[in-house]
Amino acid sequence: MAGAAGPVGISAGMQRLTMGLCFLAAAIEGFDLQSAGVAAPRLGPAFQLDPTQMSLVFSAAIAGLIVGALVGGRVSDLKGRKVALMLSLGVFGLFSCLTALTWDYPSLLAARFLTGLGLGGAFPNLIAIASESTERGKAGAVAIIYAGMPLGGALAAVMALHGGHGDWQTVFWMGGIAPLALLPILAVALPAFRLAPTADTPRQGIVQALFAPGRRVDTGALWLGSFFALLVLYLLLNWLPVLLLSRGLPRTLVLGVQIVFNMGGACGSGIAGQLMDRVDRRLTVIVIFLALALALAGLAGAEANFLMAVAAVAGAAVLAAQALIYGLAPGYYPAEVRGLGVGAVVAAGRLGSVAGPLLAGQLIASGSSSADVLMGIIPVAALSGIATFILVARRPA
């Protein structure tokens, strides 16, 4: 038998403290993920970056996220969740601060890649800790943690709306100092979530861990569900403002849409977790993905007066869809490879986050209207829904 992952029998108060610390860490990560977008209007001119170079700045962080998710998950299985989480927070905090000190384009790219490395390593550990900190309601615990990310993103959008980012460096200083300040608190207060192997616990290779008999379909469905869900999410995060502005809508309204989209996402993530733990999971998947399809259709044609409400529903639905997948993922892997398994799911999703903005760019370049783009990703959302339904159909509870 494999040893337990994480503290056994921790008190209810310690569970709440653990969840609170992880939620805070997720919110900080959500802020950092959108920091480059907030800084972009001033960062680009400061370095005299053309659109292609600016895209590479964004892509450097995403590349780091993909690598970091795999590495961070594996480190957590070998060295413990707490160690891996603190190391990841330290890396993205340090290099976010160093981003503010970059002096040319190559140094900026390097800083963003290394920041992404830490960001990617942190999230699989947050998911694993949330799942392992409670015996009941594991999916709901993961979804609550995930809700912190859009709240952090909403804070970044509020900064942009009110011009609070000042010069381009400020947002990176804020995003870097916050995780570094959290480290000593985690060192003292976070339990040591570490696998305690026994003599008969086999050491599994990466391929064996992910594709062991009986786990292959689950891994494939998790990867596909995460890839397509994040494709839709990041297409909306990156291109929705552009698509709405192309319809002649006021910039203040569009920034407001960004804020309610993130706030709706935070609510949707929490609701998804509660539904998974209380309602038939197959019904939950159907309802959430149907709501997402309807919301995308609504965004394609909603009048200005209704746009805020539709955006809130869209944010809630797309974040709920991803929260479903993250909430399910830990349960499909044994404790000794859970960090790697969850990290691989996160990495697959990050590939989707690269594909989404590229897909929108290609559609727009080919002459597609904003409505065409939004309607065109409904089938993509459906593919994520099908993959997620396969997961819950194989294991309904």
Score class of each variant (00 low, 15 high):
Gly6Thr: 14
Gly6Met: 12
Pro7Gly: 10
Ser11His: 05
Gly13Gln: 12
Gln15Phe: 01
Thr18Phe: 09
Cys22Asn: 00
Ala25His: 07
Gly30Met: 03
Leu33Gln: 12
Ala40Asn: 03
Ala40Val: 04
Pro41Ser: 06
Leu43Pro: 06
Leu49Lys: 08
Met54Val: 10
Ile62Pro: 04
Ala63Phe: 13
Val67Tyr: 01
Gly68Leu: 11
Gly68Glu: 04
Leu70Phe: 11
Gly80Asp: 06
Arg81Ile: 09
Val83Glu: 13
Leu85Met: 08
Leu87Phe: 08
Gly93Ile: 02
Ser96Tyr: 12
Thr102Val: 11
Trp103Val: 15
Asp104His: 12
Ala111Thr: 00
Thr115Glu: 04
Leu117Ser: 00
Leu117Thr: 02
Gly118Met: 07
Ile127Trp: 00
Ala128His: 01
Glu132Trp: 10
Thr134Asn: 07
Thr134Gln: 08
Glu135Asp: 15
Arg136Ile: 08
Ala143Cys: 06
Ile144Thr: 15
Tyr146Val: 03
Met149Gly: 10
Gly152Ile: 07
Ala156Asn: 04
His162Val: 00
Val171Lys: 03
Gly176Glu: 04
Ala178Val: 07
Leu182Ile: 14
Leu183Pro: 06
Ile185Tyr: 01
Leu186Phe: 10
Pro191Gly: 06
Pro191Arg: 01
Pro197Trp: 05
Asp200Ala: 06
Pro202Asp: 10
Arg203Asn: 01
Gly205Asn: 09
Gly205Ser: 13
Val207Glu: 13
Val207Ser: 11
Ala209Phe: 01
Ala212Pro: 00
Gly214Ile: 10
Arg216Ile: 12
Val217Ile: 14
Leu222Ser: 09
Trp223Tyr: 11
Leu224Met: 15
Ser226Lys: 10
Ser226Asp: 08
Phe227Pro: 01
Ala229Tyr: 14
Ala229Ile: 00
Ala229Arg: 06
Ala229Gly: 14
Val232Phe: 11
Leu233Gly: 05
Leu233Met: 14
Trp239His: 04
Trp239Val: 00
Val242His: 11
Leu244Pro: 05
Arg247Leu: 04
Leu249Ile: 06
Gln258Gly: 13
Gln258Phe: 02
Val260Phe: 01
Asn262Asp: 10
Gly265Arg: 12
Ala266Ser: 13
Gly270Ala: 12
Ala272His: 02
Gln274Trp: 14
Leu275Asn: 06
Arg278Thr: 15
Asp280Phe: 11
Asp280Cys: 09
Arg282Pro: 03
Arg282Cys: 01
Leu283Thr: 15
Val285Trp: 15
Phe289Asp: 09
Leu290Phe: 15
Ala293Glu: 09
Leu296Ile: 13
Leu296His: 07
Leu299Phe: 02
Ala300Cys: 07
Ala300Glu: 02
Gly301Val: 05
Glu303Tyr: 02
Glu303Thr: 12
Asn305Phe: 13
Ala317Glu: 06
Val318Ser: 06
Val318Cys: 12
Leu319Trp: 14
Ala320Tyr: 02
Ala321Asn: 03
Ala321Asp: 07
Leu324Phe: 04
Leu324Tyr: 02
Ile325Glu: 02
Leu328Trp: 01
Leu328Phe: 11
Pro330Leu: 03
Pro330Asn: 10
Tyr332Phe: 13
Glu336Ala: 14
Glu336Leu: 07
Gly339Phe: 03
Leu340Gly: 05
Gly341Pro: 00
Val342Met: 04
Ala344Ser: 15
Val345Phe: 13
Ser353Asn: 10
Ala355Asn: 09
Pro357Phe: 08
Leu358Met: 13
Ala360Ile: 02
Gly361Thr: 10
Ser366Asp: 14
Leu374Phe: 12
Met375Ser: 03
Ala382Gly: 12
Ile386Asn: 09
Ile390Lys: 07
Leu391Phe: 03
Arg395Trp: 01
Ala397Phe: 12
